[in-house]
Amino acid sequence: MMTVRDKTAIRFTCEQEMVREEREPGTPPCREPHYPCRVGIYGWRKRCLYFLVLLLMIILVVNLALTIWILKVMHFTIDGMGHLRITDSGLRLEGDSEFLHPLYAKEIRSRLDSALLVQSARNVTVNARDEEGRVAGQLVVGSQAVEARGKRFEVNSNNDRLLFSADESEVVVGADRLRVLGAEGAIFEHSVQTPQIRAEPFKHLRLESPTRSLLMDAPRGIAIEADAGDVSVSCRLGLLLEAREGAITLDAENVRMPSLPRGARDKPGPTQGLMEVCVCPSGRLYLAEAGQGCLAFSSACE
């Protein structure tokens, strides 16, 4: 067995031979004896490598277990995930579903045997956007009110008949009958244009303006009819019936004016309680005893 001293001597001899070879070319070089070398990782490096491999295996097993647990909890199948099913016509959700972010869909519909319920803790907002991304129509269902924003609002029947429409210029009611169930009726702050105003059967029709005047105007006449009752017109100050072209006709079996004033009696005579209607120059009517004559300067005309 060769010692360290022998190895040092051989190395020293080789160095001398190398120097001599440089000085004298052609001399064979000195070679050290061949010793086998161990190849590999030993010591603390080997332990660190084994620890790293073990740690990677633990992480791999934990990830695999978590993946299997998530698949089991979320009910992942070939058709979908949980209550979500992927069909040929789109996505199908069964049961209650919660959306925490905006939902973009072309069509949302329920099953044939159930209703579609959209519920929110606050407001439910449905937006329709144009090609530039701006909101063109909006429907907000809140706890205080239901608001609809858009250029035009329409309500149609099943046979595509217009029932109600509203825009900035007008509001159209397309139904055959507009029914107001309020105790005070319908209140209009401005003019109303309609071809007919009719009360329900066995109900009274009343047109009233408590603090202002009531004006009815028509280019071709106004017809007030009561087939099974009376027509009553009352006012506080004055009632004006004016016909610019034509006449005012009172067509009835009896025309009564119970509150006409009576003129002064100029001379006594048997009148038998008969009275006649007289007209003052101002147009005022008064009663005078028959046979006395209508006086233009009667006291009733003052």
Rank of each mutant, 00 (worst) to 15 (best):
E170H: 04
S157D: 05
S191I: 09
V171C: 03
E189V: 00
R161L: 06
D176E: 03
L163Y: 08
L181D: 11
D167T: 09
S165W: 06
V180L: 08
D176W: 09
L181P: 03
N156H: 04
S191R: 10
V173P: 08
S165M: 04
S169G: 04
F153P: 00
I187C: 13
F188H: 03
H190M: 15
A166Y: 14
G150P: 02
G185C: 09
A186M: 15
V171D: 06
E184P: 06
R179A: 15
A186Q: 13
D160S: 07
D167P: 02
N156P: 01
A183M: 01
L181A: 12
E184H: 09
L162E: 06
G174L: 03
R179S: 15
A166T: 07
S157W: 04
E189R: 09
G185E: 02
G185Q: 07
E170M: 07
N158L: 02
D160Y: 01
N159L: 10
K151H: 11
L163C: 08
S157R: 02
D176H: 10
R177L: 14
A183I: 04
A186L: 15
E168L: 12
D176M: 11
V155G: 10
A166Q: 02
D160E: 03
R161Y: 11
R161P: 00
R161Q: 14
L178H: 09
D167Y: 09
E170Q: 07
R152K: 09
E184G: 10
S191V: 15
G174N: 01
L178G: 07
H190F: 15
L163V: 10
G182R: 12
V155S: 03
V172F: 14
L162Q: 09
G150A: 06
H190K: 15
E170A: 03
R179F: 15
F188G: 05
F153M: 11
D176A: 12
R161E: 12
R177Y: 15
E184M: 02
S165G: 00
S169W: 02
V180C: 00
E170V: 13
G150T: 05
G182E: 03
G150F: 04
A186P: 13
D176I: 07
N159G: 13
L162A: 05
A186D: 11
L163E: 01
L178E: 07
V171F: 02
S165E: 07
A175H: 05
S157F: 04
D176R: 12
E168P: 00
G185D: 01
L178I: 08
V173L: 12
G174W: 06
E170G: 04
R177V: 14
E184R: 11
G150S: 03
R152T: 11
H190W: 10
V173Y: 12
K151M: 14
V173S: 03
G174C: 07
V173T: 09
D160Q: 01
D160T: 04
V173E: 13
F164C: 02
N156F: 12
A186Y: 14
G182V: 05
N159I: 11
A186S: 14
E154F: 09
V171T: 13
A166K: 11
G174Q: 06
L181E: 13
S165V: 01
D167W: 00
R161W: 08
D176S: 10
D160F: 02
R179H: 15
D176C: 08
G174M: 01
L178Q: 10
R152P: 07
